[in-house]
Write a protein that binds this DNA or RNA. Structure first.
Lengths: 250, 250
DNA sequence: CAGCGTATTTGACCTAGATCAAAGTCAGAC
DNA sequence: GTCTGACTTTGATCTAGGTCAAATACGCTG
């Protein structure tokens, strides 16, 4: 019985046959220092590789759906991902944008806590959840690292709550640009100009705004000389200090 | 050098002298099955008790401040707590209401991620952070439990994001009442009628609304016969099914 | 390079909820 | 019991941002 997933992912078979020289993808993984894998010694890493598959997803393709049984955990290695929740009438809240080094799919329930979709062509490491959980028992360091990441995400979630609950449209857009830039630094990517791999609509669904309001805020920032829109998908932060001020103290 | 904290907390000295019969407070702790402590065997629990102090805080008194060095982790055993973040101009977002069994103060930074204040007279178990972290290394079960709790909180944070980003005022208030009721069930407290230990202003700061809008939504729900306000601090959910519908699918 | 579908910008208008203001209510202090 | 201050409700107005609509702009595909 083949899974439907086969149609969604292109699986890199080579990964599974890291034969002869014991060269495996982690050795050349560019995001390892930024991901949970950094906590592992070579031996532990080898255990992880044994249960891992690398998969690729085209832009705008789903990675998993909220309703689905949560059978895998993923680690982004290339590309960008959005995770989101839907209300029954279609209203959408994007709860995060993920970049190389970020984990997704961790849950303590039967199903995922959100849906995930690739923004650009994306590569991920995929781990069967059950096997990973079994490994976790033997690797307290990995578990500690995951707790650390969860704690960091929790703090980020609270920043997002104050943004959604109490910030003006302009403050939200500025905070968003600063956040993208900070995330880029943290992941060792260029942070200025900063890339915008998502649409205005996605930004709106992340910031609790309409796409028109996002667009208006961006042109206003451009007019004020705080940013330059190099092209539709690339913003230069001209006055980061002034922007940090506007972002509003958080 | 005495800490300033001494003025804030009333510390129950008896806790530290659980002498003769090795009776310690956990044995009679009513919230243990609902807290992280449930993961522990008696021996592990004893280790935890050794580093623990019980403290009491009066209603409307601070427990810790966001800017403070995070030296303790707390577990609520009685009462109710609000945690919140402030923008520099005073706008406030309450990011959570905590009840017996809930942890607060976990962070991976120098300082706390939020401020915490008692809503009612509150009792807490207090653990020195460093000592707790040392114990964590020896108690993988506790660490797993904390990861599970963090993962649960993360899911709750995402529900809060969709509430703040995409729900109407009425949907927010209904969602809030349902959430309080669900939390009461989870913690083994009466869930209908449900207690409201916080003010309308607090509710507004949690839901991203003004206190007036919260009040209007409540009277509208009352008029529609969905709820009854027994007194200012106690709501009966008259039609939970209809309310679950309004809450909007999440 | 022409045509097309999608994303973005900009404009005009509208509405949910904020803000301002004024009565009630209630609980604790004396 | 009644005074007082904090909380809540209700009303009247205002506005930030949503919605609807139209005009560009931008890749792609053939």
């Amino acid at each position: 019985m083949k899974k439907k997933m086969a149609s969604r992912f292109s699986v890199d078979a080579a990964t599974k046959t890291h034969s002869l020289h014991l060269v495996h993808p982690c050795d050349v993984c560019e995001v390892r220092p930024y991901s949970a894998c950094a906590a592992l010694n070579p031996d532990e890493q080898a255990h992880l590789v044994e249960i891992m598959t690398t998969v690729e997803v085209d832009a705008h393709q789903p990675i998993f759906d909220e309703a689905e049984r949560a059978q895998h955990v993923f680690n982004v290695t290339e590309g960008a991902v959005k995770i989101y929740k839907l209300l029954s009438d279609g209203r959408r809240q994007i709860t995060g944008f993920l970049f190389p080094g970020d984990f997704l799919g961790l849950t303590h329930n039967e199903s995922y806590a959100y849906s995930a979709e690739a923004l650009t062509h994306t590569k991920l490491c995929r781990f069967p959840r059950q096997k990973l959980e079994a490994l976790l028992d033997e690797m307290p360091k990995l578990e500690q690292r995951l707790l650390g990441m969860a704690s960091h995400e929790l703090a980020a979630a609270q920043d997002q709550m104050i943004l959604l609950g109490r910030k003006s449209a302009k403050e939200r857009v500025v905070s968003f640009l600063m956040m993208l830039s900070n995330a880029a630094v943290r992941h060792g990517r260029p942070d200025n100009p900063v890339g915008l791999p998502m649409t205005r609509n996605d930004m709106g669904d992340y910031l609790g705004l309409s796409l028109e309001t996002v667009s208006r805020a961006l042109t206003q920032l451009k007019t004020q000389g705080l940013i330059q829109l190099l092209d539709e998908r690339r913003v230069r932060l001209a006055k980061p200090e002034a922007m940090r001020e506007i972002a509003g103290g958080v």
